[in-house]
């Protein structure tokens, strides 16, 4: 029965799952857009398309408010599944502009997966074929998997396999992130926790190296998530474990990467909804 339940769950993407994915991803997107829209009135470090055009006209308080209101409207349209070709490409363009402005203010948050998610969903809706229900979720998963693989390649390119050997030196990066929390809040607990974990990392170098090697492997082979819905879910759980480990040791959640991955690959709220719907009407859902 357990096996049939899981087989059914992994056989296709349901409308309910899609609605939950849309609400989750667009809510976080809007939250990031809100943070990105505040307190900018210049483009001191031009990046992306701002290296070709003078973007200073885009960062007045009026235009940023306009972008935020547009993002609110687009989020509503996206959740209501209205004019999806127009809506998804518009969300991509708003992302492109605001995240480029953020990069051009020297804040490198790597929000690329958000922008690309809406772009590839635009492709799925533009194609509008029989596989739309699957493609509007599977296309973003391809981009997310590529993001992890790029992160892995970047480590190998910059440091080679020595990246794993460097792991004990990561201890001061762990401390750095706890220090950020301390200097942001003044709460000594962050400093104590940071020192405690850093000392552990230095004293247990082999454990840290092993964890880093596993993380690098998971990043490099993220394409395994693309085999089917089940592989995406299992790989998503492994990546979630990796992010929990990163949060514990380094006190960071890489939200622009973690949230799209969790939403599209694991979709925990979708799984909860599915489980509840099976429990409430088992005869309709489980095949004989």
């Amino acid at each position: 029965m357990k096996k049939r339940f899981l087989d059914k769950y992994f056989s296709a993407y349901t409308n309910a799952e899609w609605i939950i994915i849309k609400i989750t991803i667009s809510s976080f997107w809007l939250y990031i857009i809100k943070i990105t829209s505040i307190n900018k009135d210049a483009v001191p470090f031009p990046s992306g398309f701002c290296t070709f055009f003078d973007c200073s006209a885009l960062v007045s308080s009026y235009t940023l408010v306009l972008f935020f209101l547009t993002a609110c409207l687009l989020t509503v349209l996206y959740i209501l599944e209205k004019w999806m070709i127009f809506t998804t490409i518009s969300m991509f363009l708003v992302s492109l502009i605001l995240f480029t402005l953020e990069d051009s203010n020297g804040i490198l948050n790597y929000n690329v997966l958000y922008s690309m998610t809406f772009f590839v969903q635009f492709i799925a809706y533009y194609r509008n074929n029989a596989n739309l229900k699957s493609e509007r979720i599977q296309f973003p998963i391809q981009i997310i998997a590529a993001g992890y693989t790029l992160a892995g390649i970047s480590k190998l390119y910059e440091s080679g396999l020595g990246w794993v050997a460097q792991a004990p030196q990561a201890s001061i990066q762990m401390l750095k992130n706890y220090c950020y929390a301390y200097y942001d809040t003044g709460d000594n607990l962050y400093l104590d926790k940071g020192m405690q974990l850093t000392t552990y990392a230095l004293e247990h170098a082999n454990t840290i190296k092993t964890l880093f090697a596993v993380s690098l492997f998971l990043e490099l082979f993220a394409c395994l998530a693309l085999i089917n819905k089940k592989s995406a879910f299992i790989y998503g759980l492994l990546l979630t474990s990796m992010h929990i480990g990163i949060f514990y040791f380094m006190h960071i959640i890489i939200i622009p990467v973690f949230i799209p991955m969790l939403t599209f690959m694991v979709n925990p709220w979708g799984l909860v909804y599915w489980s509840l719907s099976v429990i409430s009407s088992p005869r309709q859902v489980l095949p004989r």
Binding site: E158, Q166, Q169
Partner: peptide, 21 residues
């Protein structure tokens, strides 16, 4: 590094320094 493209180079090396301001 040209949005929406990136090599996602976060923590791709661990130099022996960490600056906090």
């Amino acid at each position: 590094e040209f949005h929406p493209f990136s090599r996602l180079p976060m923590y791709n090396s661990f130099p022996n320094y960490a600056y906090i301001f």
